[in-house]
């Protein structure tokens, strides 16, 4: 959006003369650098995201393992109590308490990783949008630049070849005249083809075996034989 405004201002300021750039060459360089940077940021964010997701998965696995162990040791504790071994049961309970403390830590780590991953996903999305915007602006700059250069090449070629630039209506009139002449010639040729009674009469006569006969091999041979005999 910023760029369109810049071009708007340049046009309003009268920067429409051939050779006068709407956008200085620096803008292209800066935009290209920004695109490169944004591409770099996206690449880095995606790498970080992969790492964070891997850590999150490891934490989830760890949580499941700890939970299984807690269940297992709770079973042991019950067995110890059933056997009346209070001391062992306390020791097992101590172990369970430790496991639950680990569980808490892992759960905290997992939610932190998960939050981090979400932030990175948002960052990637945002950077992708910025990148698309930079690319759109670059297209705009390059097209403007290219059209300007092309236009000046076209007008240079006109002045070099000394072509007289006719007005639009004169050009159109000349093209229409040429088209009319072409159509007239085509029509004339068609009329000529259709209105040739001689040709049709010849055809009819020939079909009837009347009129000048075209020479055939046998008639030529007859002629030669006649000459030879004479």
């Amino acid at each position: 959006m910023g760029l369109l405004k810049k071009i708007f201002t340049a046009i309003r300021g009268g920067a429409t003369e051939a050779g006068e750039a709407f956008v200085d060459a620096n803008s292209i360089r800066i935009l290209e650098q920004e695109i490169k940077d944004a591409d770099g940021h996206i690449h880095k964010a995606k790498q970080d995201l992969t790492t964070v997701i891997a850590k999150e998965m490891a934490a989830s696995r760890e949580i499941e393992e700890i939970k299984t162990k807690v269940n297992e040791y709770e079973g042991y504790a019950i067995s110890a109590l059933n056997k009346g071994d209070e001391a062992l049961a306390i020791e097992i309970a101590d172990k369970i308490a430790n496991l639950e403390s680990d569980l808490g830590q892992q759960q905290e780590a997992q939610s932190s990783f998960s939050a981090h991953a979400n932030r990175l996903r948002e960052l990637v999305k945002k950077t992708e949008r910025t990148l698309a915007e930079y690319k759109r602006q670059l297209t705009m700059v390059k097209t403007t630049d290219s059209v300007q250069k092309a236009t000046s090449a076209i007008s240079d070629s006109f002045s070099n070849s000394n072509s007289k630039i006719m007005s639009a209506t004169e050009s159109l009139e000349r093209i229409k005249t040429k088209q009319r002449e072409f159509d007239d010639r085509l029509k004339a040729a068609e009329t000529l083809d259709n209105e040739s009674p001689d040709t049709s009469l010849d055809t009819k006569m020939k079909e009837a075996g009347i009129g000048p006969q075209t020479s055939s091999a046998s008639s030529v041979l007859d002629r030669i034989k006649a000459k030879k005999g004479a």
Binding site: T139, K142, T143, S146, V147, A150, I154, M166, A168, E170, S171, L172, R174, I175, K178, Q179, F182
Partner: peptide
């Protein structure tokens, strides 16, 4: 037949 009004073609990276 339409020499008076040529078409000019130019190219950028995208179009």
């Amino acid at each position: 037949g339409r020499e008076e009004i040529p078409v000019y073609l130019t190219q950028t990276d995208t179009q």
